[in-house]
Simulated scan of single mutants.
Amino acid sequence: MKKDYYEILGIDKSADASAIKKAYRKKAIEFHPDKNPGDKEAEENFKLAAEAYEVLSDPDKKARYDQYGHAAFEGAGGFGGGGFNNMEDIFSQFGDIFGSGFGGFGGFGGFGGGGQRRVKGSNLRIKVKLTLEDIANGVEKKVKVKRKVQADGVSYKTCGTCNGSGQVMRVQNTILGRMQTSSPCPTCQGSGQTIDKKPQGADADGMVTAEETVSIKIPAGVSDGIQLKVSGKGNDAPGANSIPGDLIVAIEEVEHEFLKREGENIHYDLYLNIADAVLGGSKEVDTVNGKVRIKIEEGIQSGKILRLKGKGLPSLNGYGNGDFLIHINVWTPKKLTKEQREFFEKMKEDENFVPHPQKGDKSFFEKVKEMFS
Rank of each mutant, 00 (worst) to 15 (best):
V143D: 04
V249T: 14
K335S: 09
F105I: 11
I243W: 05
V128Y: 04
K295F: 05
G166M: 03
T332K: 03
D276P: 05
N173C: 08
E297S: 13
K295Y: 02
K346R: 11
V254Y: 04
N241F: 12
G83W: 04
Q189H: 06
G360N: 11
N173S: 11
G82N: 01
S122T: 04
N173K: 13
M1V: 11
G190W: 02
K367Y: 03
V354D: 07
V128N: 13
T131W: 04
A275R: 10
L270I: 10
G75P: 00
Q193E: 15
G83C: 06
P219L: 05
K369L: 09
S57H: 03
G160M: 07
P219I: 10
R64F: 05
A237Q: 02
E342F: 12
I274E: 14
G318E: 06
N163H: 15
C159K: 03
K311N: 09
V230E: 06
G245K: 04
K129C: 09
K198P: 14
L279N: 15
V292E: 11
K334C: 07
K144Y: 03
N265P: 02
S183R: 10
I126W: 01
Q301T: 06
F108Y: 11
L325H: 06
R25E: 14
T209R: 07
G290K: 08
P186D: 00
G166E: 05
Q150L: 13
S122H: 04
L313P: 04
Q167R: 14
P355W: 01
K2P: 15
G201F: 01
Q150S: 10
T209I: 12
G114L: 07
A49T: 04
S215F: 00
Y5E: 12
F372T: 13
N137C: 08
E44Y: 05
S223R: 15
Q180R: 12
S122Q: 09
I90C: 08
K198H: 12
D246Y: 03
I248A: 11
Q180E: 15
F364L: 11
I328M: 12
K141Q: 10
A71Q: 13
A28P: 02
K120D: 01
G109L: 08
V168C: 03
P238E: 10
K217D: 14
D16W: 06
